[in-house]
Design a protein around this nucleic acid. Structure first.
Lengths: 211, 211
DNA sequence: CGAACAATTGAATCCTTTCAAAGGGAGTGG
DNA sequence: CCACTCCCTTTGAAAGGATTCAATTGTTCG
């Protein structure tokens, strides 16, 4: 199903590899970083490129748990990896030993907020709402309006949103027809009407206050 | 919409209230523990009873993030609460100050695994699969086969699974018709055919191994 | 006992999936 | 450099499932 690409060239030595400070890895596209079920001996920090984490279900369906871009972490779970991580572009990662407990809380919080973002995607019930929310999520991560990059495939998006590639494709086509976005190639998307997109996603901003 | 019940009787003093070790609260049904958006000064541990956390979206839809039973925690997020927490039965909670950072990692992990369980519910696309997985989740939490308690309303279940109360009700009726479960009153459910339920949920157990 | 609310059920509609096929890009080999 | 092939994406049509609208039944509480 997924051609198990390899070439997980671990050319470390930028940091002392044994001190747990990190081990630098540059990986080709479609490199598997770790496998669901393996004992978690490391966690990873994405320095550049894109990574996806997914889990495979017995019925063959794949659930895509998250996309990880520069600055994100993956594999922070204790015990066994709950997901499989793969690069979806060329990427450089920093591998950390799981030992130094002190380093973990901040990353746990990050993983938790990532999970919460994912959950909030499912607060939307229709394909239009989910896709709009997803596009805005990506756009915000990239901190830019205008043209955004979608390094992942339609199948990845579909598995992340709990839809099929057909519905994803149809929905994007519909957004284009309605002049809300404009696909530029298959990896890029220009956001034309940010407000309509936000309205469609039924944005829910939570800002701290009161007590 | 929700009658904002009160009586958040905070009769602490089991532990010294000022040392951050905890403040005991016993709450009536439908008591609001904290509000989405408020600054998070405490996190809570459920000692008995059931609590739900939810977020309200601008369009009026409510997304139910999690159910919390004895031993679970809620409100561990930093900054502002991302959800509103309410009791759904009588409950006793222990309130902890957010200050002692040392106490948090374990609870963060717990919150993270709870979020991951929720996400995995959405790996299922049909109502039957989601409901089967949900019932098994509850049954496991209660560590008993046979009759389980569903302290939450159908609306709560629906908002948690991303369905409507109608679909939830219909699906349970269908499971009953097929002799897989047997509703006993509206708060209890007897699991007749555990295997069929597991097959329907397309169980995906992840056990650690290898390397 | 009556009222208000929760849950169930029926029927029609809408949306997503499934099945099927065609279009478009990227990479390979001649 | 071009042609070919493979895979991803897009699109069409039919089928299945969830939602919506509407009404009934059942429960809880005053």
């Amino acid at each position: 199903m997924h051609q198990p690409a390899f070439m997980s060239t671990a050319n470390g030595t930028k940091n002392g590899a044994g001190d747990g400070a990190g081990h630098l890895m540059s990986c080709a596209k479609n490199t598997i970083i770790f496998h669901q079920g393996d004992t978690a001996r490391h966690w990873y920090e994405v320095l550049s490129g894109s990574v996806r984490t997914s889990r495979l279900r017995p019925d063959g369906h794949r659930q895509l748990i998250g996309f990880h871009f520069a600055g994100d972490v993956c594999g922070v779970e204790a015990g066994a990896y709950q997901t499989t991580a793969e690069t979806i572009t060329e990427a450089t990662l920093q591998r950390h030993d799981v030992l130094p407990q002190a380093a973990r809380p901040a990353h746990l919080e990050r993983a938790l907020s990532s999970a919460q973002r994912h959950i909030s995607l499912f607060g939307h019930r229709t394909a239009h709402e989910r896709l709009a929310a997803f596009i805005l999520l990506i756009a915000r991560g990239a901190k830019l309006r205008g043209t955004i990059q979608l390094p992942m495939s339609r199948a990845d998006i579909a598995d992340h949103l709990g839809l099929t590639i057909h519905t994803v494709s149809r929905t994007i086509s519909d957004l284009a027809r309605r002049q809300i976005v404009a696909p530029e190639g298959r990896q890029h998307l220009r956001i034309i009407d940010y407000e309509k997109l936000a309205a469609m996603a039924c944005e829910t901003e939570i800002e701290g206050s009161s007590s």
